[in-house]
């Protein structure tokens, strides 16, 4: 899922100052699961903004609403009436949600209340980790299901760098070296020979490097 975290209140106040009627709009999908932009977080951020506004004399009038998915027009429509009544929307959706709202309501300022962080999983309670870079050409089958593009800080495709340690990555002491994980996993499933092949340079044209992407499914376009 998409993992995000909320922006700090001073940044939001700075963003919103000059506006009066503000709609804080949550999203009920990924950002709800990662505790960043669901109904609960909408209430927390709204409450904090009200207190901050009173303190700094900005006089915000803040209303709250959460829709099922900000990246889906069917649900975006449900916010139409509320959005019409406000000067600005503070979206607590991911970056895709914010843009979807902005595109649909072209006359309304739509701001991002979250920093969209990565595609990841809930590792343990309160801890999310990044797993996928959406490169558009998955190589996981070659690496025991561990992505070296995402989880190796140098995107190494042929083995670890010299800074690899059995218990950590060169870049962050609190993260494991992906290549140590790949090695152990491939060994464990009897596929260590895969590591002995030289992996040729990757075609990045399917990734963001190839330009902004879109997906068309003709069988669904009627």
């Amino acid at each position: 899922m998409i993992v995000a975290e909320r922006k700090k209140i001073p940044e939001l106040v700075e963003m919103l100052k000059g506006h009066k009627k503000i709609l804080v709009l949550g999203c009920g999908t990924c950002v709800t699961v990662c505790l960043a932009g669901g109904e609960r977080e909408v209430s927390i951020i709204s409450s904090a903004l009200r207190i901050a506004s009173r303190n700094s004399g900005y006089d915000f009038e803040i209303d709250e609403m959460t829709i099922e998915r900000q990246c889906d027009n069917v649900f975006i429509e449900q916010a139409a009436e509320a959005i019409a009544k406000h000067d600005v929307v503070l979206s607590l959706g991911c970056g895709a949600g914010v843009q979807a709202i902005a595109e649909r309501y072209s006359e309304k300022p739509v701001y991002a209340g979250l920093n969209t962080s990565f595609l990841g999983v809930l590792e343990e309670r309160g801890v999310w980790t990044e797993k996928c870079s959406a490169c558009g050409s998955c190589v996981l089958h070659k690496y025991g299901g561990i992505c070296p593009i995402t989880r190796c800080a140098k995107h190494m495709l042929n083995g670890p760098c010299g800074g690899s340690r059995e218990d950590r990555c060169e870049v962050r002491p609190d993260r494991p070296c992906a290549w140590q994980l790949i090695y152990r996993r491939l060994k464990g499933i009897g596929e260590l020979d895969r590591l002995k092949n030289i992996e040729a340079v990757k075609d990045w044209s399917t990734s963001l490097d190839g330009g902004v992407r879109m997906l068309i499914r003709e069988d669904h376009r009627i």
Binding site: K8, I9, P10, A48, I51, A52, N55, S56
Partner: peptide
């Protein structure tokens, strides 16, 4: 932490 952000 939130109070600190708000400036309280």
């Amino acid at each position: 932490a939130i109070l600190e952000e708000i400036g309280l």
